[in-house]
Design a protein around this nucleic acid. Structure first.
Lengths: 167, 167
DNA sequence: ATGTGTGCAAAGAGTTTGCACAGCC
DNA sequence: GGCTGTGCAAACTCTTTGCACACAT
């Protein structure tokens, strides 16, 4: 693949997103879909913050530029991004659908803080390898995976310890 | 822990569920909660099929015994089971909340077929070990985790191949 | 008797959809 | 001009909640 490997948690620069812009353009051309200012705004907002964004967050961001944009449009555009292979839907436990760049090369997974909802990404190639082996053992062909750990982050552990000290 | 290790995908026998029955009884006693025939039916239905049951499935099963049971009661009882530590909530991608026995010793994870929705459990202690290491590296204390692989099961691969052959 | 539990129906939260109008090609 | 896209609001799905009555303890 042409684009470079992206370190977890870094925001992709223009060059990194180029590949996804092309994917999207190709998909839209193939389906006869049109480019509109709403879609452009939403796509830009997504590329500017492409990790774990919820519809709400995206809508807020997009409305800074164009207050008239409706949330149905955001839903529809994110579905478009998902279908074109640019974005992936993720459902963490909180009932919201979040979206992230569909980076099929960099398989990052998530550590989620149960107290402050902070999401930390990690990569572990060894886990990837084991996964493949498990799938093979069961005869599955794997398309995607989800690996999340829920716990308490260092900051919240400190806070909890401080609370403990006071009481 | 007193209860035996349970192999993935096997249904626990009476003896296996004993431990959970005790947990539940202790929780209810502590909170001053009451035993009712509805709760008994729901709990039995859950223990009879404790893996990945949805509220719908549970409700259908419970109504075979008592058609008057409302779904609010099933929701409330499953929440009770979750709070008492007997059950765990799981959200796979389909928008339904499913419940399973909260077996904190046997960490089984899931392989999910994207075509027929079949769910296969697997265990991989090595992955568990790696997880712990990753969490430690990030300073997290892990409470729970979720590890799911989405793909195509052997049956559906065969079906797809057959379709291919015919066309 | 007291207060928890239940069933129903309504309310919520998140997401999808139908429709008339707007705007791209 | 034709057809896609948009915004709004209504519809939908799953889950939670308020209320009056039922029933454990």
């Amino acid at each position: 693949m042409a684009h470079g490997r992206r370190a977890p948690s870094s925001h992709p620069d223009r060059n990194d997103t180029e590949h996804y812009r092309e994917m999207l353009a190709a998909f839209m051309a193939k389906k006869g879909l049109r480019s509109t200012k709403q879609r452009d705004h939403i796509v830009e907002a997504f590329f500017a913050q492409p990790d774990h964004v919820s519809i709400e967050e995206l809508l807020a961001r997009v409305r800074e530029r164009d207050p008239a944009i409706g949330y149905a449009t955001v839903y529809r555009t994110l579905k478009l991004l998902t279908e074109s292979g640019v974005a992936n839907e993720r459902k963490f436990g909180d009932g919201l659908t979040r979206y992230e760049l569909a980076d099929d090369e960099t398989h990052h997974d998530h550590l989620i803080c149960l107290e402050c909802q902070k999401i930390v990404e990690f990569e572990e190639p060894e886990v990837e390898r084991l996964q493949e082996e498990i799938a093979r053992r069961h005869g599955f062909v794997v398309r995607s995976h989800k690996h999340e750990m829920y716990g308490v982050c260092p900051d919240c552990q400190k806070k909890a310890a401080a609370r403990q000290g006071r009481n």
